[in-house]
Write a protein that binds this DNA or RNA. Structure first.
Lengths: 369, 369
DNA sequence: TTGAAAGCGCTACCAG
DNA sequence: CTGGTAGCGCTTTCAA
């Protein structure tokens, strides 16, 4: 591929405005509201005056709390609408101690965060779904990398956190507990018994894939997993091991470096094919890893799915676009995100846990198997 | 493609927690900090006591404002660190009138928002880059759909807004001006002369594409654009028209429905190929439209690029994965996002405008041309 | 260079 | 069912 720059200018680069953690956003005199609109932004005092009630009544009427006469409530709400009043979140938060804001923390750390986001349609869909669900719940969602320290978490100033792919003894989980931030994880924390998580049943999904491959004639399925210690990889691995044991088939597992999964998968697959125990199918779990398997098969002159059946553990547009199109597990990230937000809202509301919320997995059967 | 559900459970669906706009997040007694950790979250009063100074001094020392003795400042900062103090954003915001938070508003409206996000790697990269840059600037970023009304905008309670793809006389632009919310747009607002935007030079990029196609032997280039009234489509269209006029070639333009651009593009291309003025190249601007062109060419039995050269106006993984791989414009959304945040931070800081910030475009030449 | 005090807008508490 | 009032944690203003 050739890259050709269409237009290169001397452009205006603003100065970098990096701020050290712990420092603060300082204001100039007056806010923009005051500067632009004549007069102040309306407060409940203005609404109270207009409706002929007290601020207490306005507060209760607008929040739905308290026992307020329906007629009074209607009058107050109309006055608020007329005045263009909107609650000032900062004031609510300061008084109530709850900010009405949650954060979505996706892996990995800050450094390669944007890269991950950029390459994983799973993350992208999950993010969009969480944001949409949060707004529907009347809250606000921040998008943030995993906080590395207590101060970073505190600096978020959120009521709750959605944490994706917690690891065993996850520091973020510990920090949330210490800081009193409500937490819901997407996928369970390995080794934890917390009921506050949503996820897929990766054991069932893996069995489904393996049964599908067997049905399509595969007799020796290799598993490409990741080196990370995530519950979904553990679960898939465990289900695979058990499935192999049930059939007396020797397990064939390779753990891939998750930084460049496609390349790592290509390398691992080539090695596997060159060795004695040549598999006739591969389940490639990490995002994009299946593309590497395809490349290795092509390099080895193998037909997919004739000589080698391939299934991806995470679906994405690349799987549908690949030739042959790759059979993949649709983990339904949009559904996961919506459910995760709903659960976090329940937790924030003080409701008791109802157990993990499992989202069904779809196997999208395409040409590669 | 066959879809096979791997596991279906009776799962726990929490109640839907939709909240009507204008209602508020109400708290129960006490916040989690208080409930979980023994004692209160430290305040500047605690830090002041520990450091033996007043709260005023702590405030000045931590914010970097005011004239504070360096020794005093160091002592205060150490005390703050030791106490684990973090500024409470709500209190800062209430007092200063600035929340330290910005919002990224991406098109279109609420209804199909998650869908767009899901399918456009451009949006995804832009989003990730904005979030990362915002955090680096010590601020927080909300992800939100375009506010439809004033109350929705006010409900965001943000200092500034990043607005993607403003339309002519954009209501959000008007609302921001009225509400005193600082605004930076990604791409200019058609008809506006505001200098507060970042974007690509779509005229230059379009000329670059057309020159490239001409060089590759194309003599009749069709343009597939969108029905939306976005500046980038206007600019590309204008550059195309001028380029055609310079060569005395008749322009061949079709506007596509942006909801299903690939299908619309396939349809439009088929019609174009069936008509007399059969083009030998197509520049398909809307996201994914080029894939439809490819499908139409295949259906017509045409070789790409032999009979028909194809270029996509927006790059994405689908373009690289397509067969043949599609030559595409890389609008460099990650760069756009970083620059947009930097510009918004400058505007929030009261700095004067330095003019639009243009990001260079790369033409990624692949097999389709 | 530092401190005292007011008050941002709202909700919790309690009295009527 | 409604109102008065205190005060959340911080920044700002003004005085020392």
């Amino acid at each position: 591929m050739v890259t050709q720059r269409c237009c290169t200018f001397a452009v205006n680069h603003g100065p970098s405005h990096a701020v050290t953690p712990g420092s603060r956003i300082v204001g100039t005199r007056g806010n923009l509201w005051t500067m632009v609109t004549r007069g102040r932004r309306p407060t409940i005092a203005d609404v109270a005056r207009a409706a002929g009630v007290s601020v207490t009544t306005v507060s209760a009427a607008m929040s739905g709390k308290g026992r307020i006469d329906p007629a009074t409530r209607a009058r107050v709400q109309e006055a608020a609408r007329a005045a263009g009043w909107t609650p000032r979140r900062a004031a609510q938060a300061l008084r109530s101690g709850r900010t009405g804001t949650i954060a979505l923390c996706i892996p990995p750390d800050r450094s390669s965060w944007a890269d991950w986001m950029r390459h994983s349609s799973y993350l992208q869909q999950l993010t969009a779904a969480c944001a949409a669900a949060t707004i529907d719940a009347g809250r606000l969602m921040l998008l943030a990398p995993r906080p590395a320290e207590r101060v970073e978490l505190a600096g978020l100033d959120v009521d709750g956190l959605l944490l994706l792919d917690p690891v065993r003894a996850d520091p973020v989980v510990r920090m949330c507990a210490a800081a009193g931030v409500a937490l819901v994880t997407v996928d369970r924390e390995p080794g934890s018994t917390s009921p506050w998580w949503v996820g897929n049943d990766h054991r069932a999904a893996t069995r489904g894939v393996l049964d599908h491959l067997h049905e399509r004639g595969a007799r020796s399925v290799a598993l490409l997993t990741g080196a990370e210690r995530w519950a979904w990889l553990e679960d898939a691995h465990a289900a695979y091991a058990q499935w192999c044991a049930e059939r007396g088939a020797p397990p064939l597992v390779r753990a891939l470096d998750m930084d460049r999964p496609a390349d790592a998968a290509a390398h691992a697959t080539s090695a596997l094919l060159a060795a004695g125990e040549r598999p006739d199918a591969v389940l490639a779990l990490p995002t994009h890893a299946a593309l590497g398997v395809l490349a290795a098969a092509r390099a080895a002159g193998l037909d997919v799915p004739g000589d080698l059946r391939v299934v991806a553990g995470v679906d994405g547009p690349e799987m549908a676009a690949a030739r042959p199109a790759v059979t993949a597990l649709d983990l339904r990230p949009a559904e996961l995100g919506a459910r995760a937000v709903a659960m976090l809202v329940r937790r924030l509301g003080g409701e008791p846990p109802t157990g993990p919320d499992l989202v069904a997995t779809d196997l999208l059967v395409r040409a590669s198997s």
